[in-house]
Design a protein around this nucleic acid. Structure first.
Length: 930
RNA sequence: GCCGGAGUGGCGGAACUGGUAGACGCGCUUGAUUCAAAAUCAAGUUCGCUCCGCGCGAGUAAGGGUUCGAGUCCCUUCUCCGGCACCA
């Protein structure tokens, strides 16, 4: 009797079974029946943002991979924590709600429902009881609680760690109340500051840099965006720069991501140097440089236009020009400034600085190529040693003094570039005499020249040595000191939007701040009919921002505490806030006493935190850096037990798909494009094909629902894993799905036999083609080899090759009348993590009552991998000329003899002398004969 | 510009530490089954030459090197993808 592979019935049956039996409920410390003796494994997906469009086949790639890992780890005796939730605050949800005229809570919850339904369709083994959403007040209560912890902490440089602010207050007990307050407010990890932000009056909100287009307009709506200082909440992530950098050593992450974080943190070593100002007694301008060895070549100084000393040092004659330049610079966005890197602009202030190493009077300029936000906002300009300074000097005719001797190669290259001829000596002389004739400054390392005063000489010293010598000299003279600098800036943490976590902060009428008491959390979002940001005059950069919450009901905005009247903070937190700590909440999602129970946290975070964290590289810097920062603060304050949250990170690749553009370069729906003779047509017109990340913008998304319909979810899971390694991006090709579907069909037929057309109508009690006989030696060997291959691939997360191995085993079984039971059971166990529905069905058919989910992963026997003969490849001088079959224990000499007595081999060796024989054990023998 | 990563059949991709290049799948070709088709099964499928003996030669972006032996290691060049971009 036969039985067809009815994937739809099987899949809904087992999804119901898992739900009804709570198969994937995860027990932890404190739960009844929890087995603490088993090792833990915490495998986590980056939780999704529930968009209105739903899932396409590109989204679940990582989820399928982690599901396979989770299921595999359960079968290898681990307690597995594998949860899922939703990151649901933020601009897209708010914007979607505005467009549809519905409250974001309603649209967001609808989107979550839809996405949960789609995710469940993939048969993912999440413990859905732990589901969380960042918009849930029971969740964001603790997001606010962490914010309060940040606010109530300071970074103690001596301990290199966060400490409760009370400790600092205690330390400062002897200072005056006023002083103490100033120091404390300046030290908090969360603080208010006036910072330049992207202010979009039309949208009534500040925007993140990613939300501003290249021409300085808002991505949504194309409105003007202005740089404007606004009072904003900031988080002092810079205090953690060194630890965020150093602790990258502790984690098993892709090098690429570590590198991106290192670059973002941007550590550099150099020196702070104080320059005097000519004619102004006691005034100094401090600069940061990574090349103190080039100090003798500093021929001018540049201040950022916003530098506080600009007004002080500007001469009357230059006041007008300087003021105009400052206004111009202020009006330009960062993007504008960057777009004009090619040409330098700037104006002299009319005053001069004194170079501390040689007393030279050098002009002070202001120019926007110097950024206020980095270093001290002022630089010493060494045109001979810095490309930007070189270009600026050439443009404004400022002197260039070589202070590092360039190499001959560099000089020749530069000379050729400007058409200068002559021998090396002549070129060098020309460079010394007039470096401005060249196109570039020499920015490399070399021996110092023109660099000495009465006390110190760098001439002849190699760059690293010269840096050391001059820094020491500056230090001794009190003119400067060694300094480490970071590119990382503090984190701008407030938005003028509605759909985010409210800050648990109150403003008193005198301007002072009061934190909401933790027992009063959460501060819930007020219900509001009109939650839209207030639009101002789009072209008026001075329009005041009015956060949505400024229109909240007065009873929400205004509060009284201890007889004092306060107004709530009206900004909300950015979207990143909720995702900074959700991995902790999954451990203990229902806890109303703490963000996470300590014992549970210690068990599930273990030594290395989350054991496997899978998501896209697009979060390489922001989310992962922010989350690490919060985690370190929580670690310092004793709330978590590991220094790093994510022990192992894995980036899945993108699924690409063909996209098509018409002659206007507009994308057309890919599914309506027809192919004819290798050309592509949309509505009769030829369109051009390209490949890109699957999604809305390229109109090339493939909806999984139809594929469930025609192949089933097990097939879809298999296909996504079989396409290639999960970490690489690869093109989707619906045509190829039949391959893995055929595989599942063949597995099925190996159990239930061939389906002939007339029998299809009459599926009585099916019989299995499973025998109780032992496998023959060859099959036994193949089985053990397959288990080894698949097991190794599971550990490496190479699911494509794991499947290939199973396909090979199954193809061998196709040739046989019946399957030995041991082989059938092993195959089903291995298939379980990949195609769980069909595997459960077959497992049941084999007579098992319990779910396959917690069955043991098959093991292999090392001694059964090899046969008693082996095939040795014979090479002559590295070229394969044949192979010989010998006993598995044959000696090298025996193999050599066997090879040489082979007819084909002896023909090649005839008349030659054997110089050397290389034997690679069990693989090949290479005979070198000439 | 700087810093990463990658280039293997018609296509997706195998080849863990240098050891038979192209596993597995798609597609394609031929055959079996069928009235026919689908499905299934079997055989074949890197390219060239071929006295058709899978015999010879070439071949992993291009060129060079190390080695008995290189897709894998080293140097040069090209192409593509990603990140950063006046960070002093």
């Amino acid at each position: 009797m036969t039985r067809p592979y009815d994937y739809q019935a099987i899949e809904s049956k087992w999804q119901r079974y898992w739900r009804e039996h709570d198969t994937f409920r995860t027990l932890g410390p404190g739960d009844e029946g929890f087995d603490a003796s088993k090792p833990k494994f915490y495998v986590l997906d980056m939780f999704p943002y529930p968009s209105g469009a739903g899932l396409h086949v590109g989204h679940p790639l990582g989820y399928i991979a982690t599901d396979i890992v989770a299921r595999y780890k359960r079968m290898t005796g681990h307690n597995v924590l594998h949860p899922m939730g939703f990151d649901a605050f933020g601009l897209p949800a708010e914007q979607y709600a505005v467009e549809h005229g519905v409250h974001p809570r309603i649209t967001t919850e609808k989107n979550i429902d839809n996405m949960r339904r789609q995710l469940k369709g993939f048969g993912l083994s999440y413990d859905w009881r732990r589901e969380l959403a960042t918009i849930d007040p029971r969740y964001y209560r603790w997001t606010q609680w962490i914010f309060l912890s940040l606010y109530h902490s300071w970074f103690d440089p001596e301990a290199n760690a966060a400490r409760p602010i009370a400790e600092l207050e205690h330390k400062l007990a002897e200072r005056s109340a006023e002083e103490r307050r100033a120091i404390v407010e300046d030290a908090r990890l969360a603080y208010l500051a006036d910072v330049p932000v992207n202010w979009c009056p039309a949208l009534g909100t500040v925007l993140a840099n990613e939300e501003v287009t290249a021409d300085g307009r808002s991505e949504r709506g194309n409105h003007p965006v202005f740089k404007r200082p606004l009072k904003q909440w900031m988080l002092r992530i810079t205090a953690y720069a060194e630890r965020l950098l150093a602790d990258l050593e502790l984690v098993d992450w892709p090098e690429k991501v570590k590198l991106m974080q290192r670059n973002w943190i941007g550590r550099s070593e150099g020196a702070m140097v104080d320059f005097g100002v000519d004619g102004v007694e006691g005034e100094t301008i401090r600069v940061y440089t990574t090349r103190p060895d080039t100090l003798f070549g500093a021929t001018f100084m540049v201040l950022a236009p916003e530098h506080p000393l600009v007004a002080r040092v500007t001469s009357d004659a230059q006041a007008e020009a300087v003021g105009a330049y400052q206004r111009e610079a202020a009006a330009r966005s960062d993007v504008d400034r960057q777009a004009e890197v090619k040409t330098k602009s700037g104006v002299p202030t009319g005053s001069f600085a004194i170079n501390p190493v040689n007393g030279a009077k050098i002009p002070i300029w202001i120019a926007d190529y110097v950024l206020m936000g980095y270093g001290t906002g002022a630089i010493m300009a060494v045109p001979s040693g810095d490309q930007r300074d070189f270009e600026f000097a050439k443009q404004f005719g400022l002197p260039i003094i070589p202070v590092v001797d360039p190499t001959d190669d560099w000089l020749r290259e530069q000379a050729a570039d400007v058409g200068l001829e002559g021998d090396d000596a002549a070129i060098r002389a020309a460079y010394y005499e007039a470096p401005e004739r060249f196109n570039n400054g020499f920015v490399g390392d070399g021996k110092g020249i023109n660099s000495k005063n009465d006390e110190v000489s760098l001439d002849g010293l190699a760059t690293p040595e010269a840096k050391r010598v001059i820094t020491e000299w500056l230090n001794n003279k009190g003119l400067g000191q060694f300094q480490v600098q970071y590119k990382l800036r503090d984190w701008l943490f407030s938005r003028q939007r509605y759909w985010g976590e409210p800050f648990p902060m109150l403003h008193a009428t005198d301007g002072s701040l009061r934190a909401v008491d933790p027992t009063e959390l959460p501060v819930t979002l007020p219900p509001m009919e009109d939650f839209k940001p207030t639009a101002g005059d789009p072209n008026d950069p001075a329009a005041d921002p009015a956060p949505s919450l400024s229109r909240a009901p007065a009873e929400w905005r205004e509060v009284e505490r201890d007889g004092e009247r306060y107004v709530r903070e009206l900004n909300t937190m950015p979207q990143w806030a909720g995702s900074c700590w959700y991995y902790l909440r999954f451990i203990d999602p229902d806890n109303d006493e703490a963000l996470v129970d300590r014992e549970k946290e210690r068990y599930w975070m273990g030594e290395h935190g989350v054991d496997l964290y899978v998501g896209g590289v697009e979060h390489a810097v922001l989310h992962l850096l922010y989350a690490r920062f919060w985690h370190k603060v929580l670690f310092d304050l004793g709330h978590v037990s590991t220094p790093e949250p994510f022990g192992k990170l894995f980036n899945q690749g993108y699924i690409l798909a063909a996209a098509f553009r018409d002659e206007r370069n507009v994308c057309v729906p890919a599914e309506e494009v027809e192919e004819r003779d290798g050309k592509y047509f949309y509505q009769g017109k030829e369109v051009a094909r390209e490949y890109g990340k699957m999604g809305k913008s390229l109109k090339n998304a493939v909806n999984p629902d139809e594929l469930f319909e025609s192949f089933g979810c097990d097939t879809l899971r298999l296909y996504e894993m079989y396409m290639g390694p999960i970490e690489t991006s690869k093109p989707w090709n619906t045509r190829d799905i039949v391959g893995v579907n055929r595989f599942l069909q063949r597995v099925w037929r190996n159990f239930y036999g061939e389906l002939s057309s007339d029998e299809a109508e009459a599926p009585a009690t099916p019989t299995l083609r499973v025998s109780d006989e032992a496998a023959d030696e060859a099959l036994e060997r193949l089985l053990h080899q397959t288990v080894k291959r698949v097991t190794d691939d599971m550990e490496r997360m190479r699911f494509n090759t794991a499947l290939a191995a199973m396909i090979e085993l199954n193809n061998e079984l196709v040739k046989r009348e019946t399957m030995p039971r041991a082989v059938a059971e092993t195959l089903v166990r291995m298939l379980g993590p990949f195609a769980p529905h069909v595997a459960e069905e077959l497992w049941q058919a084999l007579g098992h009552e319990a779910s396959l989910a917690y069955e043991a992963w098959p093991s292999y026997d090392e001694s059964k991998l090899a046969s008693d003969t082996m095939e040795i490849v014979v090479q002559i001088k590295g070229k394969t000329r044949g192979k010989v079959t010998v006993a598995a224990d044959a000696s090298e000499d025996a193999i050599k003899d066997a090879a040489l007595s082979d007819e084909k081999i002896s023909k090649h060796v005839e008349g030659k002398t054997i110089r050397k024989v290389i034997y690679v054990k069990g693989r090949l023998i290479n005979i070198v004969a000439t």
